[in-house]
Nucleic acid binder design. Structure first.
Length: 510
RNA sequence: GCCAAGGUGGCAGAGUCCGGUCUAACGCAGCGGCCUGCAGAGCCGCCCAUCGCCGGUUCAAAUCCGGCCCUUGGCUCCA
């Protein structure tokens, strides 16, 4: 089954066919770097990451562009705040650093390019000039606006009608526009103090000498690029006039993506994006999570608290295009899911390294579980990148592996009858199961079973200390002092160390 | 008000495009059993939904059509 994706423009799910059968051009609307990234961003990133991974898995070369908006009033509003730096540039640099660090922490594969607006002003100007030349845009008091009435398809993505779009509050800006829905491609002068003030954090006083941010030379005088034009300019600069997939948050559909389509298609005269994919948002108990509401958890804190694997499992526990509820319970469930996968993976590896594996008894049930899991996972990801179903397929594989291992392990009656001599693991079957976990769980979902929750450094000492305690507990058990043994176990658990008695000795994890 | 998305078990969440196999998936929680000194992990089994409401089409609807109610998001910076 071939890959199908849901396109916001048509509202339909349809087969994915890139322009070039070997290459996929992917653009993702990145962040305005005015705050540390939060979990909502992480959710979109992880899904885009999985999309890129899956497209690679299908054999496409993926050219993936993800921009940084580093010229914006919101950034200017942070100048001087908490030692962030004395210029728009410095603030942006700080948050770009934070963002890249958060991305690494989430085990995201790097995009091909991370372009910045400040480095693409010439392309922005060139695009605006083209739009003016084609009569889609007009200059007014040093600013340039896009004339929405000139672009026939305006509103096709968001189903908005031009008449329904309300006028903006800014009286000056409205006076400069021909139509209230017209939007700025270029804004004259520096960042306006008024606009900057609306983006300042609560309780933060305006600096004595307010900054206007960076200004750039243009044919219309000094000014700053509008928010929407930058994505068109950068997308075209790195991917050409028509891209295959454009991804972004659902909250960007209008006006941002609508305007991108208008500008790009008006300028190029051809289709801008073949497929528009929109990632849905997080929901807290009552409202969405967003920068503007300030009710977010930063990526950094979430990674610290839950770890990359649990976080990625949580974030891919729903389809990208459905809203997800953020709660402690949901995180706990994700933790259970990840651990179940990880345990099965490690059990398989331990078994394959053990002597029983050499007996090479083929277990048809295991083989079937592997084939089913592979087929189900593939079908799930091909169905609009359905990561939740993908997880389910892997979870089912974990069950298959566990069943096989439980049987071979003890040499149950049933296994004895079936295999003649009973004991023995299906070496090749386990090998294939491990490969499936690695290929899909690690390669596509971006999990890391090898880590298994451990943090580098100090592990050796911790291990030694834990083993010391375990020795003591073992002696207590041998002496029948179970109260003491259980107390040690409880205390270890309080420290975050779970132990587990098995036939071969005591295992632990933390 | 306008434009979207959605209302399925205790939670979470598939299935709705292409009606029947949905007596409704996977997972979490809960219960029972195996294993275990106990616990945990694992395995086996079980409990819990007639699918927002009303009406229609059909031999047959969670799935199609109409109306209504409710929730969320967008319409303003936002992944």
């Amino acid at each position: 089954m071939a890959l199908c994706v849901t396109d916001t423009l048509t509202g339909e799910k349809r087969p994915f066919e890139p322009r070039d059968p070997e290459e996929v051009l992917l653009y993702y609307c990145g962040l305005t770097v005015s705050d540390p990234p939060h979990l909502g961003h992480a959710r979109s990133w992880v899904h885009v990451d999985v999309m890129a991974r899956w497209l690679s898995h299908l054999g496409y070369d993926v050219r993936h562009v993800e921009n940084f908006t580093d010229v914006n009033e919101k950034i200017v509003a942070r100048i001087g705040e908490n030692g962030l730096g004395e210029s728009e540039e410095a603030v942006a640099r700080t948050y770009i650093g934070d963002t890249l660090a958060a991305m690494r922490g989430l085990n995201l594969r790097r995009a091909t390019v991370y372009p910045r607006v400040s480095e693409h002003v010439p392309e922005v100007i060139e695009l605006i000039e083209t739009l003016i030349a084609k009569d889609y845009a007009y200059e007014s008091s040093g600013s340039v606006y896009f004339d929405v009435t000139e672009f026939e398809g305006y509103g096709k993505l968001s189903n908005q009608r031009i008449e329904g779009i309300e006028a903006q509050d800014d009286a000056d800006e409205r006076a400069e526009k021909r139509h209230p829905a017209d939007f700025a491609l270029w804004k004259a002068g520096g960042a306006s103090a008024e606009s900057v003030a609306t983006h300042r954090h609560k309780g933060v006083e305006a600096p004595a000498e307010p900054s206007e941010g960076r200004v750039f030379e243009s044919p219309w005088g000094e000014g700053r690029p509008g928010w929407h034009i930058e994505c068109s300019a950068m997308s075209m600069a790195h991917l050409g006039e028509t891209i295959d997939i454009h991804v972004g948050g659902r909250d960007l559909v209008f006006p941002h993506h609508e305007n991108e389509i208008a500008q790009s298609e008006a300028a190029s005269g051809t289709e801008f994006a073949r497929y528009w994919l929109h990632a849905d948002l997080f929901e807290l108990s009552e409202e969405k999570m967003s920068s503007s509401l300030g009710n977010f958890v930063t990526v950094e804190r979430a990674i610290e608290e839950y770890g990359t694997n649990v976080l990625r499992t949580f974030l891919t526990a729903g389809a990208y295009n459905s809203t997800q509820t953020y709660s402690e319970v949901a995180i706990t469930e994700a933790k259970e899911r990840f651990e179940r996968l990880s345990r099965a993976y490690h059990r398989a590896i331990e078994a394959i390294d053990g002597p029983d594996a050499r007996t090479k008894v083929a277990d048809p049930a295991l083989r079937e579980a592997i084939e089913t899991a592979r087929a189900d996972f593939t079908a799930a990801l091909n169905d609009d990148f359905d990561t939740r179903e993908g997880q389910a397929a892997l979870l089912a594989l974990a069950g298959g592996v566990n069943r096989h291992l439980d049987e071979g392990d003890g040499g149950t009656e049933k296994a004895n009858e079936a295999d003649g001599d009973g004991h023995g693991y299906d070496y090749r079957g386990l090998r294939r199961a491990i490969e499936a976990f690695e290929k899909f769980g690690e390669g596509v979902l971006g999990l890391d079973f090898a880590e298994a929750g451990a943090i580098e450094g100090k592990i050796e000492l911790a291990d030694d200390l834990i083993e010391l305690v375990l020795d003591s507990r073992e002696r207590a058990r041998e002496a029948g002092e179970y109260d003491r043994a259980d107390a040690l176990r409880a205390e270890l658990r309080d420290l975050g160390v779970e132990i587990e008695d098995t036939a071969e000795g005591t295992d632990y994890r933390y």
